[in-house]
Each structure stands twice: as structure tokens, then as C-alpha cells.
Simulated scan of single mutants.
Amino acid sequence: MSQKNKISISLRKREEPVKQEILQAKREQAAAADVKESPEYRGDSSHMHVHEMPYKGKKINGPPFMKNIMLSVITALIISLALGFLLLRMFVSVTGDNTSSPNEPANAGASAVPSDPVSMVTVEYPSFEATIVQVGVYSTESKANEWKENLADQSVPSVVWERDSQFYLMAGSNHDQAAIELLAAELSASDIPTYTKSWSVAGGSAEVSEAQSSIVETIVQHMESQSLASVPLEERKQLMQAWQETEHANGDFLNALKTWSNEGENGISWLMFGNALEKMKNS
């Protein structure tokens, strides 16, 4: 066969489509691989990309020491509240013991039986009279007490007796005229002005407790018989102690008993008992 009659078959046209198909397949495979490796690939939840919403609040950008101050303030408030709660619990537990239980009636205190009132009696006494040594008479009690203190500095006992808005300062009393003149002379020798005169206590009645009535009656008997100075000191102290143990023991009568149980010189006790009876007298 001659060379002119040779038949040549060209495969170039068939190879080109095949190559193009191979290249197309590779491109698709590469594209698929890129999609799987992408974080936005939705086929695998582990590679999902989370889009965070922007925070719309105000961001606090302060110095660091401000945060420490805020933390200290909050801590102090918490501690204060805790301590206040503990104190409240302690207060409630203490006061709860003193309050009545809920089962007790509300008017339990009102139904309590009141204590028996003090039994009072009336003591009658006669009028008394004696000669006194008067040092002065004043229009104010403060002035009379001032002179009384001056006499006390000289160891001279005295009594301030208010009568008819006047304050009489007396340094002694006695039923014996000679004894009272001797007392006045001794006071005058110490530059103490004196004036002797008769002094009387009007009779009447006094309302005292039943326990005090026997003591008042005893003193009234001694004043009437002018025997206050002759009573033994032991008996005087017993009467004073008995008066102190009674209801409403304070007062001028108690002061007279104290003076009488200590000394009672110059008839001072007679003046104090007479003054106390006049103040206790029923109107």
C-alpha cells in the first residue's frame, strides 16, 4: 500500500472532551471539599459559626480602684444587714421570755387581784404648851435655814417651824422656866440672840396607818406627861425602827424619832414632834 493511501485516525478531538470532563469533575470535588472545610458549612454542627448579637447596654469603663470601692461598699452593706438580723433575733428571744404566751388572755393583768389598801385610823391628841427659846423669825424659809446652819456650826441644834407664813427658828424648849432661862443665857453668852416665850400646839387628830397609830399614841402620852427626856434610849430606838417598818414611813415624824433616839437635848425633840403633829393634823 502506498503512502498516499494510508489512513490516519486523529484522537485529538476525542481526547479534548474527555479531558474537559475530568477537569470538570476535579473542580466539583475541590468545590465540595472547600465547602465542607468552611466554618459556614451547615452539614456539620461542630463547624457551625455562631453570630453573636451586639450588646446594646452601656459598657462601664472605669478605673480599677472604683471597682474595689464598689466591692467594699457592697461587702459592708451585706455585713451590716447580717449583724442587724442577728441583733434582732437576740432582742426578740430576750423580750419573748418576758411577754405573755399567745394562749394567755389579753386582759390577764386586768384580772389580777389588787393588793389590799393600807388600813388607816385616826389618832386624837390634846393641845401642848411649853416655853421655848426663839432665835429669830423670818419671812422666807431659805433665810431661816441659813441661820439654822450657822447654829449647827456652833453645835447648837435648832428647829424651823412654819406658822402663819412666818418661819420661826427655835433653839430649845422646856416646861421648867428656870431650865429654859439657863439655856437662853448660855446661848446669849455665845453671841446668839435669844428670846423666850410660851409656845402652844393646838389639839386635833391625825390620820395614820394602823401600824403607826400605836407609835403616835405613845409619843403623845410622853408629850402630855412631859416625860420625853426620861424615856430610855433603847425604847426610843425600838419605836423608831417600828416606824421605819411601816407603810409611808418617811416624813417629819420619822426625823423627830431619829433625833429623839440620838440625843434630844434642850427639848428639841418636843419641838420636832409638835411640828410633825401640826403638819399631820386633819384639816
Rank of each mutant, 00 (worst) to 15 (best):
S225F: 12
S80K: 12
R12N: 08
A110M: 09
L81I: 08
A110I: 03
M240H: 14
V118L: 08
P126E: 05
L71Q: 06
Q24G: 08
A130V: 10
A110P: 00
S225I: 06
E129A: 11
M53T: 13
Q29H: 12
G204I: 00
A76T: 03
L71P: 01
P105L: 09
Y138H: 05
V133L: 00
T194Y: 03
K59S: 11
V133S: 02
L233S: 11
L257A: 06
K279Q: 15
H248D: 14
T122P: 01
Q20F: 03
E52H: 15
S2H: 09
V231C: 07
M272K: 12
S188I: 01
Q154E: 13
A110S: 06
A25E: 06
S209C: 04
S93V: 06
E129S: 14
Y138C: 01
E210C: 03
E265I: 01
S101E: 06
V92C: 05
V220D: 02
I78W: 14
S8H: 14
N145C: 01
Y125N: 06
E15T: 01
Q177T: 05
A229D: 12
F65T: 00
S80D: 15
V92A: 09
D97L: 15
R236Q: 06
E146G: 07
Q166D: 05
L23G: 11
N103W: 10
V135K: 05
E247Q: 09
E129N: 14
E40N: 15
A189H: 11
S80Q: 12
Q166L: 14
Q134V: 02
S101A: 14
M223L: 15
P17H: 05
L254F: 10
M1V: 00
E129M: 07
N61K: 05
A184D: 02
Q244S: 10
V50N: 10
I268V: 10
F91L: 13
S158F: 02
S46N: 15
D44G: 04
N255I: 02
K237Y: 02
W260Q: 09
A184P: 00
F128S: 04
I69N: 07
L86R: 14
K4Y: 06
N262C: 13
K19S: 04
I74N: 13
S38Y: 05
K56N: 14
S227K: 06
A110T: 04
K58N: 11
L23C: 08
V35C: 09
Y138A: 02
E104G: 00
T194E: 03
T194G: 04
I132P: 02
L233M: 09
Y125L: 00
